[in-house]
């Protein structure tokens, strides 16, 4: 029972750090700062999913975490290659 509480408590803690990190998305002066915060969210969500998989005894959640880890990059790469490069061209 203690271990389950530990897992859920850790997941709650990670969720709270995630909510704190939202501040950077809201304030972030450059676009890159916002994207970095989103990247951190992806990692935190992976950790959260792994904890929940252990706590709720639902092994399929590890596959969800795997997909997350794979696809969190797509948005970041799309940002760097498309949204940001277009911005840079206009500055010159």
């Amino acid at each position: 029972m203690f271990m389950e509480m530990l897992y859920i408590g850790m997941a709650l803690f990670l969720l709270l750090t995630l909510v704190a990190g939202l501040w950077r998305i809201l304030r972030g002066p450059t676009a890159a700062d916002r994207m970095l915060a989103a990247q951190l969210f992806g990692t935190t969500a992976v950790a959260c999913l792994l904890l929940l998989a252990q706590a709720l005894e639902q092994p399929p959640l590890r596959d969800v975490a795997l997909v997350f880890a794979l696809l969190a990059v797509v948005a970041a790469v799309a940002f760097v290659r498309r949204a940001w490069v277009a911005d840079r061209e206009t500055e010159e």
Partner: peptide, 25 residues
């Protein structure tokens, strides 16, 4: 999962830094 996140984090960090330097931040 951990290895994937490592790989993704390293790639994204590198990409962001290179482009940020190019943009003149």
């Amino acid at each position: 999962i951990w290895c994937l996140v490592l790989l993704a984090g390293a790639s994204v960090a590198h990409l962001v830094t290179v482009v940020a330097r190019q943009r003149g931040i």
